[in-house]
C-alpha cells in the first residue's frame, strides 16, 4: 500500500509537467493543424531561462527566496514566450498555405536548431541549480517504507491546478479565448468578423510557450539540473499525452499528461525503470488502435 501511494504522488507530479507541455502541442494543432515539434525545445529553453534568471538575480542580490522565485517565474515566462512567438513568426508563418509537409519538416529543423543554439551558448554540460525548495511531509510512519510528499511536489501540483483554472477561464470566457476558438473552427469566418487570424495564431504560440516555461521552471527546481537535451524526451512524452487525450482537446491534454505520468511512475516502481518510456508509448499505440481520436478527442464529423 505505501509504495502505491508514493508512486501515485510521483506520477501526478510528473504528469502535471507533461500536461502543461501537452497543452502547447494540442492548441497549436487545433488552430493550424500542425505538430510543432520544436515545442519540447521551447520547454527546454524555459528551463534554461529559469536558471539564467535565477543566477542573475543572485548576482543582483535578490536572495529572499519567495521573491526570487516569483521573479524567476515571471521573467522565464516572458522570455520563453518571446521564443515561442518568434518561432511561429519566422519559421511557420511564411509557410502557411504551402504543402502540408513543409511546416512539419521546418518544425523538426527548428527543434534541432534550438537544441544546437542552446548547446552553443550554454555548453553541452548540464547546469545545476542549488536546491531551493527542500523538505517533505512524511505521510506514513512506523513501517519501513515512509511515503514522502515533497514541498516541491505540492508546489508543482498546486501551480498546475491554478494555471488550469486561469487558462480555462481565458479560453472559455474572454474575447481572446473566443477568437482563439473561432480561428480553430473556421479561420475564414473569423477574419470576416474582424478577427486578426495571424495575431491570434501568434498568441496561441505565446500561451503554449508560457505554459511550457512554467513547466520548465518547475522541473528545474524539482530535479535541480538542466541540459540542452531535456526537451527531446519531455517533448515526445507530452506529444504522446496530447494524442492520448485526443489531439485538439484541452482537457484531453491535461488528462493525457497525468496518465502518462502515472504510467511512468507505476511502471518504474513495480517493473523496471529502464523500460518506463516503452510503457508509455505502448499504451499510446493501444489507444490509437482502439480509439484513434484519443480519450477525449472528438471524431471530425462537424467539419463542413
Amino acid at each position: 500500500m505505501e509504495p502505491f501511494l508514493q508512486f501515485l504522488i510521483n506520477g501526478i507530479t510528473l504528469g502535471s509537467i507533461y500536461g502543461l507541455i501537452a497543452i502547447g502541442y494540442t492548441m497549436v494543432y487545433g488552430i493550424i493543424g500542425m505538430i510543432n515539434f520544436a515545442h519540447g525545445d521551447v520547454y527546454m529553453i524555459g528551463a534554461f531561462n529559469a536558471v539564467i534568471v535565477y543566477l542573475v538575480l543572485g548576482i543582483l542580490g535578490v536572495t529572499w527566496v519567495p521573491l526570487a522565485l516569483v521573479l524567476v517565474l515571471l521573467l522565464a515566462v516572458v522570455l520563453t514566450s518571446t521564443y515561442g512567438w518568434a518561432v511561429e513568426r519566422l519559421a511557420y508563418r511564411p509557410l502557411r498555405g504551402s504543402f502540408r509537409l513543409a511546416p512539419l519538416i521546418t518544425a523538426i529543423g527548428m527543434s534541432i536548431f534550438l537544441q544546437n543554439y542552446v548547446q552553443l551558448l550554454q555548453g553541452a554540460r548540464n547546469k545545476p541549480l542549488p536546491p531551493v525548495i527542500q523538505g517533505s511531509f512524511d505521510l506514513t510512519s512506523g513501517s519501513d517504507f515512509v511515503v514522502k510528499l515533497g514541498f516541491m511536489q505540492i508546489l508543482i501540483v498546486v501551480t498546475t491546478v491554478a494555471l488550469m483554472v486561469v487558462f480555462t477561464y481565458l479560453i472559455t470566457k474572454t474575447p481572446l479565448g473566443r477568437s482563439q476558438r473561432a480561428c480553430e473552427q473556421d479561420q475564414k469566418m473569423a477574419s470576416l468578423l474582424g478577427v486578426d487570424v495571424n495575431r491570434t495564431i501568434g498568441l496561441t504560440f505565446v500561451i503554449g510557450a508560457s505554459l511550457a516555461a512554467v513547466a520548465g521552471f518547475m522541473v528545474t527546481l524539482y530535479y535541480g539540473v538542466v541540459d540542452f537535451y531535456i526537451g527531446f524526451l519531455a517533448g515526445i512524452k507530452a506529444f504522446t499525452a496530447a494524442v492520448l487525450g485526443g489531439i485538439g482537446s484541452l482537457p484531453g491534454a491535461m488528462l493525457g499528461g497525468i496518465l502518462i505520468g502515472l504510467i511512468e511512475a507505476f511502471w518504474s516502481g513495480y517493473f523496471s525503470v529502464e523500460y518506463k518510456d516503452v510503457a508509455a508509448f505502448s499504451i499510446l499505440v493501444l489507444v490509437l488502435i482502439f480509439r484513434p481520436t484519443g480519450l477525449l478527442g472528438r471524431p471530425d464529423i462537424e467539419k463542413v
Binding site: 473556421d186 469566418m189 468578423l193
Partner: peptide
C-alpha cells in the same frame, strides 16, 4: 456568407459575442 458558417461548437450566444469582437 454563403453556407452561413456558424461556429458549430460555440453556443448561439458565443456566436453573437464573437460577432461583436471589433
Amino acid at each position: 456568407p454563403e453556407g452561413r458558417r456558424i461556429f458549430p461548437r460555440m453556443t448561439v450566444l458565443e456566436n453573437l459575442q464573437i460577432g461583436a469582437t471589433i
